[in-house]
């Protein structure tokens, strides 16, 4: 598969009065055409900021991309002028946000919001845009699409609004959709409907997707490849099977052991990671996970381990990755 997006050593920092927040600290990953890549991690690990950086939606001040490149279809998005960037947003790359309640404009009808992107980015006539809008709403499973076009967001439920967001994201046939916690605000039965819809649409239309989430179940169901982030860095990446069955970073292992399983009887107490995530203004040269890590040694305090390849497509950034694998083998 051809590489669609290549992020290389991206750094995004926020210059605040409390210090420089290194929200994204040298992140590199790729997305191939048509595949679904997940970015997982807990609040504040920089997963959303990476996504916002791709679309250059970081507010300055205080935020700024300070280093790195984002190559998308042969162009570096970091170097692009604001006008060219506007052409990319919504047309080549579109975004689905977490909050369907706040990401639609409450004073514009669904129809206006849906056709706006098409009228901006393409040469379609108003009438054709309307027709396409009806088609899109049908595609995302909204009943009576003609009537819905005249309605306002407050007429729709949360699940319906998220369907509208997906329709908007698909309007200009993008090559890449970034979905930032797309179902976190929804109930489980509605979450299942929306995820199934996104999966089918991306597969049928061949759209690549970056799904940002903290839900390991969602990742297991939908992602081809997974990037695990901690404190602004990718600490492990690999196929979904690598990450779930052969994790080699202590944080990935701890994350998997922290979630109770719904499909199995309770077997033991949970084994959580102790302590709190680090303050991103106080990071030193060492591994940011070491205060919470049971494998940490002195070496971890002085230098940050490189992201080393351990198998085809599976890379880990840890000095003690062999010990982690050994623990896993022992446990099984």
């Amino acid at each position: 598969m051809a590489t669609l997006l290549e992020i290389d050593r991206l750094k995004t920092q926020f210059f605040t009065t409390a210090g420089v927040v290194k929200a994204v600290d040298g992140v590199s990953y790729t997305v191939d055409a048509g595949e679904t890549v997940a970015v997982v991690g807990e609040s504040g690990c920089g997963k959303s900021v990476t996504a916002m950086s791709i679309l250059r939606l970081i507010p300055w001040p205080p935020g700024k991309i300070t280093n790195g490149s984002i190559n998308f279809a042969g162009r570096d998005l970091v170097q692009l002028g604001e006008g060219d960037m506007r052409d990319v947003r919504g047309k080549d790359i579109s975004m689905i946000f977490q909050e369907p309640m706040t990401s639609l404009n409450p004073v514009l009808t669904i129809g206006m919001q849906l056709t706006e992107t098409m009228l901006t980015h393409t040469d379609v006539s108003e009438a054709d845009a309307q027709k396409r809008a009806v088609e899109l709403l049908g595609m995302v499973g909204i009943s009576e699409p003609e009537r819905r076009l005249l309605q306002y967001p407050h007429h729709l439920s949360g699940g319906m609004r998220q369907r509208v967001m997906i329709a908007m994201a698909l309007a200009c046939e993008p090559k890449l959709i970034i979905a930032d916690e797309p179902t976190t605000a929804l109930d489980v039965t509605i979450q299942a409907q929306i995820l199934e819809l996104m999966k089918n649409l991306t597969r049928d239309l061949g759209v690549a997707m970056i799904i940002i989430t903290h839900n390991l179940g969602v990742v297991a169901r939908y992602a081809d490849r997974v990037n695990v982030m901690y404190a602004g860095k990718i600490i492990e990446h690999g196929s979904a099977a690598d990450i779930y069955y052969r994790p080699q970073h202590p944080y990935t292992l701890a994350l998997l052991r922290s979630v109770p399983r719904m499909d199995q009887p309770r077997q033991a107490k949970l084994d959580p990671v102790q302590g709190q995530p680090p303050d991103l203004t106080m990071l030193d040269d060492g591994c940011a996970f070491r205060p919470r890590c049971r494998f940490a040694t002195e070496k971890c305090a002085t230098s940050f381990p490189d992201l080393e390849s351990v198998a085809d497509g599976h890379a880990v950034s840890c000095f003690h990755k062999d010990e982690v694998s050994a623990t896993l083998k022992e446990a099984s």
């Binding site: 489980v188 039965t189 979450q191 299942a192 995820l195 839900n215 390991l216 179940g217 969602v218 990742v219 297991a220 169901r221 979904a240 099977a241 779930y244 069955y245 998997l256 979630v259 399983r261 719904m262 499909d263």
Partner: peptide, 8 residues
């Protein structure tokens, strides 16, 4: 409807 953290 609940996704389980186990890809296979």
């Amino acid at each position: 409807a609940v996704p389980i953290p186990d890809p296979d």
